[in-house]
Each structure stands twice: as structure tokens, then as C-alpha cells.
């Protein structure tokens, strides 16, 4: 059990890979949900579209040169759609609609069996030539996640980051200064979309599999929990929270508990963490309604 608690060898490599991959997607989503305080619950829909876009193309053509642009295009398309919706709907309406969008994309994936193989998923995903070993893939993903982290840190401290925060705090006050909401939302959703694409690109190569169960609602809950616990909008906080919560999630496997109990136990524990984090940040989680 001790060797499990203190990760070494392949297990340490696995933890590093999973943490880095998750971090890229969560930091991208943090720009929308944390910094912009946009009630967007559809990051997994973007993930689904770009993931299946990439790997269905790869399965059919065997070429990453074709698959990668298709994956990016799918992420961008869905991000554009969410941007458009976010500019036309009230926050609560957007929240509900993005959940519905997630379900719609998932339903398409599950039922368009000739293309997606439905619930069976896409097995035997080949890795890129230079990512054949786990060490190579992990090194690449750690490098990408580090670069992404610094990019997000730069964004947070940039004009765009400040303007997005201003919009999140009070839309009218921000607009009265000349802040352009459509442009900022577009940038935020595109960052989120590209983050989703990068994570998918590595994650499914790592598993050699694309499976619909990787795109279910609990994944979104886990992402939301990471952001809320790490302080919404804070790149540093969310990065740390990703490391800690993934470590906790994986380390729970070391406990001498039956798998049938461990699953629900983990969900309950995460529920409690989310509850505590929301309670702790109840005053700053979403902008207060202020009159003008």
C-alpha cells in the first residue's frame, strides 16, 4: 500500500500524464467558467466533437495530418456556436442549453454507429510516431501542459484577462468603458476549445481508445470542482487544485476497499469537496447582481 501511496515508476508516469492532460483542458475551461464567469457547462461537448472528429478521421484515413485539422475545426466550430449562444442567452438559459448540447452531441456519438461505433468506442488508436512509448508521450504532454500553463498565466495578466474579469464582474460597467464582449467571449471560448482538443489528442493516444464513457457528465463535475476549489479564474490556483485532486482521486485506489465501494465513495467525497469549496467561495463564485 505504501508503494502505491508514494508513486514511483510507471504509476508515477501515469499520474504525471493524466494530471498534465487534465490540466490543459481545465485551464482552458477556467478562462470561460472561472475568469469570465460564463455559465458554460458544455466543455465536454467540445471535447466529444473534437475527440471524435480527430479519431474518426484517423481511423478512416490513418493520417494525423488530416485528423488534427479536423479535430481543431470541430473544436473551433463548437466554440463558435457556444460563443454565439452565450451572446444571445441569459446566463441561466445558457447553462441549461450547454448541458442540453452536451447530451445532444453524446447522443449523436452513441447512435451514429456506422461512423463512431456507438457504445463500443474506437479501439486501437495508433499513436503518433514519436509518441510510441509512455515516457515519450508523458514527456510531450508535460511539456505542452507547462507551456499551456504559462500561456494561461500570461492571458490572466493581459489586457484580455482584465477585460474578461471586468465583464464578469459587471457587464454594463465594462461595456461603458468600451469593452467589446463578443470579441472577448470568442477568445475565451476558443481557448477553451483548443484546450479540449489538446487534451483529447494526447489522452486517447495514451489509452489507445476513444470511448463515450470518457465524455459523461461526471467529468464536467470533476472539472467544475477543480476550478471552484482552486479559485475560479486563478491559473495558479486551478493548476495546483488539478494536481491535488487528481492525486487524491488516483491515490484513493490504494485504500484496501472493494472497487464496488470505492467508486461511490469517491463520488461522495468529491461531492463533499465541491460543496465545501462552493460554500467557502459563496460570495465570489458568481457576480452579485448590482444595480446601476
Amino acid at each position: 500500500m505504501l508503494s502505491c501511496l508514494l508513486p514511483t515508476g510507471n504509476y508515477a508516469l501515469h499520474l504525471l500524464a493524466i494530471t498534465s492532460m487534465t490540466m490543459v483542458h481545465v485551464l482552458g475551461y477556467n478562462v470561460i467558467f472561472g475568469k469570465g464567469k460564463i455559465l458554460h457547462f458544455g466543455p465536454i461537448a467540445v471535447s466529444l466533437a473534437s475527440g471524435y472528429g480527430t479519431f474518426v478521421t484517423l481511423t478512416w484515413t490513418g493520417s494525423y495530418l488530416l485528423a488534427v485539422p479536423i479535430g481543431i475545426a470541430m473544436a473551433v466550430l463548437l466554440s463558435l456556436l457556444f460563443t454565439w449562444l452565450s451572446l444571445r442567452l441569459e446566463p441561466d438559459g445558457l447553462g441549461i442549453l450547454t448541458i442540453a448540447m452536451h447530451q445532444i452531441v453524446l447522443t449523436v456519438v452513441l447512435n451514429w454507429t456506422p461512423v463512431t461505433r456507438g457504445a463500443l468506442g474506437l479501439p486501437q488508436i495508433p499513436r503518433m510516431p514519436w509518441l510510441q512509448s509512455n515516457v515519450a508521450l508523458t514527456s510531450a504532454v508535460v511539456l505542452v501542459a507547462t507551456a499551456w500553463f504559462f500561456l494561461m498565466l500570461l492571458f490572466e495578466r493581459s489586457t484580455y484577462g482584465r477585460q474578461l474579469q471586468a465583464l464578469a464582474e459587471h457587464e454594463w460597467y465594462a461595456k461603458a468603458l468600451g469593452i467589446n464582449r463578443p470579441r472577448l467571449y470568442l477568445i475565451a471560448f476558443l481557448i477553451g476549445g483548443i484546450g479540449a482538443f489538446i487534451t483529447n489528442l494526447f489522452y486517447h493516444q495514451y489509452l489507445y481508445l476513444v470511448h463515450p464513457s470518457d465524455f459523461l457528465f461526471p467529468v464536467l463535475i470533476f472539472y467544475v470542482m477543480i476550478i471552484v476549489a482552486g479559485k475560479p479564474g486563478s491559473t495558479m490556483g486551478v493548476a495546483l487544485s488539478t494536481i491535488l485532486l487528481i492525486f487524491l482521486r488516483e491515490e484513493l485506489r490504494c485504500l484496501p476497499i472493494a472497487a464496488s465501494v470505492l467508486g461511490p465513495l469517491r463520488m461522495m467525497l468529491f461531492g463533499i469537496i465541491l460543496l465545501a469549496a462552493v460554500w467557502y467561495r459563496r460570495d465570489s463564485l458568481f457576480p452579485k447582481k448590482r444595480t446601476i
Binding site: 474579469q165 459587471h170 461603458a176 467589446n180
Partner: peptide, 24 residues
């Protein structure tokens, strides 16, 4: 014209209930 565009054209506004960003 949109509020942001009006601001760019030179209209500045001071709000009744302190139009500042309190978290900044």
C-alpha cells in the same frame, strides 16, 4: 450603436451606484 462603440466614440459614463470593479 452599441454601448461599447459609444464609449469608443467618446461617451463616458459615471454610474449612480459606483461603477467600479470591486474585485480588482
Amino acid at each position: 450603436v452599441s454601448p461599447a462603440q459609444r464609449a469608443k466614440l467618446g461617451i463616458g459614463r459615471v454610474f449612480q451606484n459606483f461603477g467600479i470593479f470591486r474585485e480588482m
